[in-house]
């Protein structure tokens, strides 16, 4: 007779082994099919002047509630570190000046449009999609409001319209996909940026540009292109004068968080092996216990 505890031990081991085997076999999980010419944006924080005009342009483009243009000249917002929220897809934060100068470092924050996004992976209804051209696009019609994407995002970007009781949406930067994908025009923030601290283009070319800038001005930049590798790479790239952790970019592995969860889940169900094994073992156990019962009954009978 198999005790209840042994039963869980056996099934647990089998399932775990199956999953781990799957993880090993699928270490390089299938990435979404991305266009080699996909778009991206490069933020050069050393050029940013902290004018916050990108915030205005974004709000204007995406019909977000906002004040007039001049109200964005208010620099008192820099007193606090801000995050994108349900009413703003992007915000600029101010950090202390680099050593030897008095000019602060201003950093624009928005969705980085991961190459292999955890939010897309977590979305159970496919409301979030990674476009092969770069942007991570949201479809409010499909969204059921589970907010798994908010938990999944390693950069804590998606926000939720809690204030809207009837038709709340997930709110995050779309890389102005209606402009970038349909018309090939740069996102509103890029077009607005006065010192052109933001550049829109092919991600591959932007990477080249970023590395060139770092190589040509080694004193000006920290030698790392944020977004080249972090969390499996992002479409939005950044170069800055200090390590990423100092501008509140979380320390993440170079593998997308979605890869781990997807390999476990997909591994278990691949070819239906996991469930078949589980139910196979269950069947054998049931068979053996019913045989034993029969023997007992026969003995007694």
């Amino acid at each position: 007779m198999v005790s209840r505890r042994d039963f869980f031990k056996i099934t647990g081991t089998v399932a775990g082994t199956a999953a781990l085997t799957a993880v090993g076999a699928e270490a390089s999980a299938p990435h979404p099919k991305l266009d080699p010419d996909r778009f991206g944006v490069l933020t050069d924080t050393t050029l940013c002047i902290g004018c916050r005009r990108c915030e205005w342009a974004c709000a204007e483009q995406n019909d977000l509630p906002h004040g007039d243009l001049e109200s964005f000249g208010d620099t008192s917002v820099f007193d606090l570190m801000r995050r994108p929220d349900a009413e703003s897809y992007t915000v600029v934060n101010r950090y202390s000046p680099p050593a030897g100068t008095d000019q602060p470092l201003d950093v624009k924050v928005q969705c980085l449009h991961c190459e292999h996004p955890a939010c897309v992976s977590a979305c159970i209804v496919g409301a979030l999609v990674k476009s092969p051209q770069g942007p991570v696009i949201y479809d409010a019609w499909k969204c059921i409001g589970c907010r798994y994407c908010m938990i999944a995002c390693p950069f804590q970007i998606p926000a939720y319209e809690y204030a809207d009781p009837l038709t709340p949406r997930i709110m995050k930067c779309t890389m102005c996909s209606e402009r970038t994908l349909a018309e090939g025009r740069p996102p509103a923030c890029v077009e607005m940026c006065p010192p052109e601290a933001l550049v829109f283009g092919r991600r591959s070319e932007l990477l080249e540009l970023a590395h060139r800038r770092i190589m040509e001005n080694p004193d000006r930049y920290h030698p790392e292109v944020i977004g080249e590798h972090i969390a499996g790479g992002t479409s939005w790239l950044m170069i800055t004068d200090r390590p990423a952790a100092e501008i509140d970019i979380p320390e993440l592995s170079n593998e997308s968080p979605a890869v781990i969860t997807e390999t476990i889940q997909h591994g278990i169900f691949k070819g239906f092996t996991g469930p078949l094994m589980l139910f196979g073992i269950l069947g054998i156990l049931m068979k053996s216990s019913s045989d034993k019962r029969k023997e007992k009954e026969d003995e007694n009978g």
Binding site: I49, R185, P186, E191, P194, P195, E196, V199, L209
Partner: peptide
């Protein structure tokens, strides 16, 4: 042009603003 057109050099708007700012 309004936005940066070339990756090699800033457009007029970027050139002016970088110079002044």
């Amino acid at each position: 042009a309004k936005g940066p057109v070339s990756l090699n050099q800033p457009a007029l708007k970027g050139a002016y603003h970088r110079q002044c700012m």
